[in-house]
Design a protein around this nucleic acid. Structure first.
Lengths: 142, 142
DNA sequence: TGTTGTTGTAATAGGGTTGGTTACGATGGC
DNA sequence: GCCATCGTAACCAACCCTATTACAACAACA
């Protein structure tokens, strides 16, 4: 599968919003964020829209509108970002129901669900240990 | 994205091969495995082909052919399965190069790569703790 | 040696997702 | 009321995933 890059786009946008804030420009338009990510402003409005729904950014409309962080960058983790933009599970079960007359087909789903949940939880815990502030700091010191 | 179900198909096939072996039928054809997963035999031959390249199953051609486990089910982890069938990374970086003139665009890739690698490693470690034997045991006791 | 059953793989197709683009109504400061 | 910008719908091309058909390669066995 070609994994999507939504988490990357969203993290990029948030880091850029935070750097702009530190430089005295707390509000950026989707055009300005798109210029840094180098993609279409609509893509960013969609991504920032997801982040808005999740409470990570604020948005203003009308003249002088734009986006800004809704909370300190130290309190936005990569797990928050992942939750906001990536509803898909990491591993999918069978697309079509397996054969229920076979013992394996009948019982495999809960067994795999357990394993997948455990692995996904480990993945999420790792993301929760990184913040946008940490990402930005690493960017500026590289 | 609709995550693919290759790990699920492969784990199902391996568990079924192991159960058949315990029942005295160490070799199964792709038709027989496909009947349990309830999909096309070609899908299974492709999946089992990946597992074969990874050294997890053996295959025989000609009359009386089929597939069997290449090592004990206790020694095949879900990480082995994932490695065999899922070459894609869990999280993708930018599809198009970000703006190098922006500090964030210029430095974000290594910062995110670090984070993504760490999360992926946690995910892999969790998969490594589960074996096909364990999965099958859970299936039979459910 | 010929028959037979199965693997391995190519070609193809439909459906879904992704990122990209255009377009436009809604919004709100001026 | 004007105007810059958000929010979102509609559409598109590219790509991937699963499924299917087809067939050559292969190996056991008569």
């Amino acid at each position: 599968m070609a994994a999507n890059s939504r988490v990357t786009i969203a993290a990029h946008a948030l880091a850029w919003l935070e750097l702009a804030r530190q430089r005295g420009r707390p509000w950026l338009t989707s055009d300005e964020v798109a210029a840094s990510v180098k993609t279409n402003p609509v893509i960013l409005r969609r991504s920032l829209g997801d982040l808005h729904k999740a409470g990570l950014v604020r948005s203003r409309r009308g003249a002088g509108a734009g986006f800004s962080l809704a909370r300190p960058a130290e309190e936005i983790t990569m797990l928050d970002v992942w939750n906001a933009v990536s509803p898909e599970p990491l591993l999918a079960l069978h697309r079509t129901e397996p054969n229920q007359e076979c013992p394996v087909g009948a019982g495999i789903k809960p067994a795999l669900t357990d394993t997948y949940d455990e692995a996904t939880e480990a993945f999420r815990a790792a993301l929760a240990r990184r913040t946008i502030a940490g990402i930005l700091e690493k960017i500026l010191n590289s």
